[in-house]
Design a protein around this nucleic acid. Structure first.
Lengths: 172, 172
DNA sequence: TATTGTTATACTCTATAACTATA
DNA sequence: TATAGTTATAGAGTATAACAATA
């Protein structure tokens, strides 16, 4: 992924009083309105972290969503595809290929569900456990780097506020 | 966009000590590890807001990125495509069609850049100004709804912390 | 030589419809 | 009848390469 970063912006963006007729040039881009929107800021922050995440996790051959899936299998042995989809907001057809890939790489194993004959329980293999131990450690480390501008208290506050936005009240 | 929401989760997710042989079923999905990651939380929050944003902005015929582009043109008359790309992290080829579409809808007008013969300055038409007045007002309103779980102070804090994540230190 | 804007195109991600096997 | 998983496919979003016009 190519690196594209917001242009530097000086504190008080000089606003000329609107020109007579000719088109003026824009020197520093005024982004103040967009920066009042949670959606805009959250998306920009997510992309910034993912930019760091991508190359570091490529070492383990996993992309962001793949990491999320494997992490849930790690901490929820026997989880089903349906549960993964509901939890992560994915669609079933888009999970099939991912799971197959993990199986071919011998990272996960599919076992019959104990009570539901239609479902399949997902489990990490020993190789999968080893990879995820390393990957989760690497993820925690790079997260620290990506949010190095925040104090531990600020980081904790940020998590709490973000969860207030996307989690339904009943699950908090 | 279909609605997919995280499953309800009870506070202490019972962790069984790894089963002997048979595969156990997962009742409540344990998402505690993922929720320690800023990248995960920011992405989930961004998607939650966008889910509200999409249908409300469809009334004006603009998608999230299109809204961002038009908003920057609104507050930066004469801005160039290149400046839009740098500011929003877009790639030039992907902006061409969008700008053409806005021009065909008579929302923006392209004028020669005052000093650079290669560049084109973008300006809103009266129709574009009218649409963006309404759209920005609607966006502010729906943002309030999407973040109704936050107090004004919390909302302000959230913005500040998110910007600390994605803005380079020099531009803060 | 470098940059703005453009075309063409490829790749990835996400979404929809329809099918099977089981509940 | 409803649900878990799957297949095939369509659409949106994002990426690279190469070009003309201008700096």
């Amino acid at each position: 992924m190519a690196t594209r970063r917001t242009a530097a912006q000086t504190p008080p963006p000089t606003r000329r009083p609107t020109p007579p007729a000719a088109a003026p040039a824009v020197d520093a881009v005024d982004t103040r309105y967009l920066e009042t929107l949670v959606g805009y800021n959250a998306r920009r922050a997510a992309l910034a972290v993912i930019e760091v995440f991508l190359p570091r996790m490529a070492v383990y051959g996993v992309k962001p969503v793949e990491f999320s899936v494997l992490s849930l299998v790690t901490h929820n042995p026997g989880i089903t595809s349906r549960q993964l989809c509901t939890t992560l907001g994915l669609l079933p057809p888009n999970l099939v290929g991912m799971i197959s890939g993990f199986e071919k790489r011998a990272l996960i194993q599919r076992r019959p569900h104990p009570t539901d004959g239609r479902a399949v329980g997902l489990h990490l293999t020993p190789d999968g456990e080893k990879l995820m131990r390393e990957a989760e450690q690497a993820a925690a480390a790079l997260e620290g780097e990506a949010t190095s501008g925040l104090s531990p208290a600020e980081r904790k506050t940020l998590m709490r506020l973000l969860q207030k936005v996307y989690k339904p009240r009943s699950s908090r």
